[in-house]
């Protein structure tokens, strides 16, 4: 199963730091997301892009996780050499993450 089947996501940028939300369509799947979509997995997925640490913040009241990716945007939108200077497309790659089938 792909992450995008049970969650949605948006990327934001501030300076050279990117944040990517992962929000359960059904809040009942929040614990499953919390278990499987870890900071380590996100760091590994973006290993070729993100140079700094990846931190995860938990938002149980809205069934969401927020990933903060440091040193992730080639210096930030104002000076990046990349086509996607904001890194807006990162969320779409994260949603392609493979997950085990949902229990029950």
């Amino acid at each position: 199963m792909k992450l995008r089947e049970i969650a949605h996501s948006r990327t934001g940028d501030k300076g050279n730091t990117s944040n990517i939300s992962v929000i359960a369509f059904d809040p009942a799947n929040y614990e499953f997301l919390r278990e499987h979509v870890t900071a380590d997995r996100v760091k590994l997925l973006f290993a070729s892009i993100v140079r700094g640490d990846v931190k995860r913040f938990e938002m149980p009241t809205i069934g969401a996780l927020n990933f903060v990716l440091m040193d992730a945007l080639g210096g930030g939108v104002t000076r990046s050499l990349a086509v996607d200077q904001h890194g807006k497309s990162l969320s779409s790659a994260l949603l392609d993450l493979d997950l085990p089938a949902l229990r029950g």
């Binding site: 996501s9 934001g12 944040n19 929000i23």
Partner: peptide
Amino acid sequence: ATCKEQLLYEVHDPANYIQPDVVADFSNV
């Protein structure tokens, strides 16, 4: 869903959203 995506847009630590007038805490929203 549309509101939650915007709630976390460009936010780092949801418990410490630093603004000039206040450090807002969104963690129990």
